[in-house]
Design a protein around this nucleic acid. Structure first.
Lengths: 109, 109
DNA sequence: CCACTATATGTCATTAGTGACATAATCGCA
DNA sequence: TGCGATTATGTCACTAATGACATATAGTGG
């Protein structure tokens, strides 16, 4: 797991980083969180590649800046559905999304 | 788009199949529906591979038989989050899910 | 035919996700 | 330094998703 991702998780209280953690987080839950974080990062990357602010993207999504921020941060209150909608709105096709999901953090490996 | 998938979509009123349709369904929405249908099919395949009934899977998911049926049918009322939870619960890893999402129906191609 | 099992479909109360807003950091840039 | 733009975080009313239940529709074996 890379530094950036870990920091992001810890910041949101996912309790991921330091060795003893992952306690209380089943492998299944970990998989889902991992996917969500990857999608959040991909969303940010795409948004920036499009030269859009969070506010600008929010308008396209008929959402709000704060929610976009939470999407990129993989906040507990954002669904994967919403992340996918955001990515698709930024031109991501299913195969692009597939590539993002596949990005291993080395969980099982 | 293959026959089975199309039948499934039409049955649920997604109005997909016959040439003139896809009207009122934006490319973005189509992408999302397509992914959802693929996930539903994958869920059924995995469940059957595990020799589980919908009811048995429902118990593992702490859900109900009816909801599992709706998941596999890609019902409008089921979220992609729920589908992913189901798949992960059946042992699918992110890379497995990625493969499912990537299955093109020829939308953009 | 009936009994049993599995799946499909509709409805509804409870819960979780959402958009919107306020506010606080953060980051140039003059 | 302050100012404008961008991003982060907390809260809340409203909406959509969920589990549960009832019921319907196959299919299977007596």
């Amino acid at each position: 797991m890379n530094k950036v991702k870990q920091k992001r998780l810890e910041a949101k209280g996912w309790r991921v980083g330091t060795a003893s953690t992952f306690l209380g987080l089943s492998p299944e839950e970990a998989s889902l969180v991992e996917m969500k974080v990857n999608l959040g990062q991909a969303l940010r990357a795409r948004r920036e590649a499009h030269g859009l602010s969070q506010l600008a993207l929010a308008k396209r999504l008929r959402s709000s800046q704060s929610r976009v921020a939470k999407m990129e941060a993989a906040d507990r209150t954002v669904s994967i559905d919403l992340l996918l909608r955001g990515l698709v709105m930024l031109g991501a096709r299913p195969r692009d999304i597939a590539r993002v999901l596949g990005r291993g953090t080395g969980a099982a490996a």
